[in-house]
Design a binder for these strands. Structure first.
Lengths: 235, 235
DNA sequence: GTATTCAATATTGTATACAATTAGGCTGCG
DNA sequence: CGCAGCCTAATTGTATACAATATTGAATAC
């Protein structure tokens, strides 16, 4: 079974397509924080005009995946330790309640989806594709928010998880094990059981674990080559 | 020294300027929900090209003040009762804690700013300018979030309050008094006193009051998209 | 008279051209 | 040798031109 494209929202227009591709690259840590995202360069890679690229970059800037400096250009966002801390504080505030809500509403179909996410996550880990595993781990949380059926808060959580990807890229302690989907599995179980209290508590502790796996003291800097990382043959 | 030729003033960031102007118009209820926002029309009004207008509209779409339908155009957002409920649920989740945090950090300068906000709000109310009063009332909440010094959550609250303006435009019960800044005054007092517990509780009850002033049962008439109205049974 | 088809118009989506700003290097002077 | 100033190249900001899609209205067939 080969890794298949992660089902993002279907890109209706070119702008969304480019934005999704860039977001995926960032989430999978192929694009490091602070990487310059030149408009011409991206446009050539995806065969679209700067108009489309600019719209995509602005879209990503709105969820703070990239930072746009006027007359300077767009860069992959590089959250400060303070911002990183805030992201996880906000998640700790929102997600436990979301997990509780999900436990009270999840359908068998939802449980299937969650288990499928975990399965794919395991596959990615076994394949040594950490970037993809991190992305899938985040999408697991997004899926829970979707099940909770709170669009507004779900949207917030999506942006938080997007930024979490950057935080992890910058501050993850290598010595700590990658997202033990163990925790995810227990979460699914409590949600499937409709055990609201347990789901809430598991999510809370899960986030605490995640947070404790970060080292917010050092702020590494990396620069990479765009074209090699983004080059795709599909049209 | 030289004469300053200013045939046409070129703002630093035209996009932001247009977006701000449109957002203000929406917040002050000069632009009603579901109003069509044609690109050419707006461009002529502000003397900018469609490029700038499109960027501004997309920016507003990201905070859900406008809704963009592909190949159809941009419209002032019109939150459903469900969305309206969610907005205030999210505020109830975030703002009490923010008020508590503000109470623990506010400086005398911050208190001055808050009191100034209330004063301006009173002025607007006395002048019968309800739109401006509503906008100022919202900015009061944003100011508290700023004082709390949590950029991430503050950003969420900003978007929630922006949408609250639309919710109020659609669902506000005429019979209920407009935002009694009485509540705001008490809040400022508790924040000035550093009384965290009281600030949190006051904010909570204030939001409950706001919510109870809405009537989410009836969805106001919006004959913007007839096709949808005829096709959907509307839950 | 009604409904359907199809052309005409208007509006949005995208690409390209031009203007403004920035970054880097070169020269010239101290 | 070092630094200031300017000049050139590169990149972004904005405007305009062109393409694609949707809406409108009229003509035609039934």
């Amino acid at each position: 079974m080969q890794a298949q494209p992660i089902p993002t929202r279907k890109p209706q227009d070119a702008t969304q397509k480019v934005a999704d591709a860039l977001a995926l690259a960032i989430h999978e840590h192929r694009l490091a924080p602070s990487t310059k995202l030149g408009e011409d360069e991206i446009g050539e890679i995806y065969n679209v005009s700067r108009t489309v690229v600019r719209a995509a970059l602005q879209s990503l800037a709105h969820v703070q995946l990239v930072e746009i400096q006027r007359n300077k250009g767009a860069f992959v966002a590089s959250p400060t330790p303070r911002a990183a801390r805030e992201v996880f504080e906000a998640r700790a505030l929102l997600e436990p309640r979301t997990a509780r809500s999900a436990a009270s509403r999840a359908t068998p179909r939802d449980i299937e989806i969650l288990k499928d996410h975990i399965a794919q996550e395991h596959l990615a880990l076994d394949a040594g594709d950490n970037g993809r595993a991190i992305n899938l781990s985040g999408r697991f949380h997004i899926e829970i928010a979707r099940i909770a059926d709170q669009d507004t808060i779900s949207h917030f959580i999506e942006t938080l998880i997007a930024r979490s990807s950057l935080v992890i890229a910058l501050y993850w302690r290598r010595e700590s094990a990658l997202c033990e989907s163990h925790a995810h599995h227990a979460l699914v179980q409590s949600i499937a059981d409709g055990d609201e209290q347990n789901a809430e508590e598991l999510m809370r502790s899960h986030l605490v674990d995640l947070n404790s796996a970060l080292d917010l003291r050092n702020r590494p800097i990396q620069v990479q080559n765009l074209r090699e990382l983004l080059q795709t043959t599909d049209e």
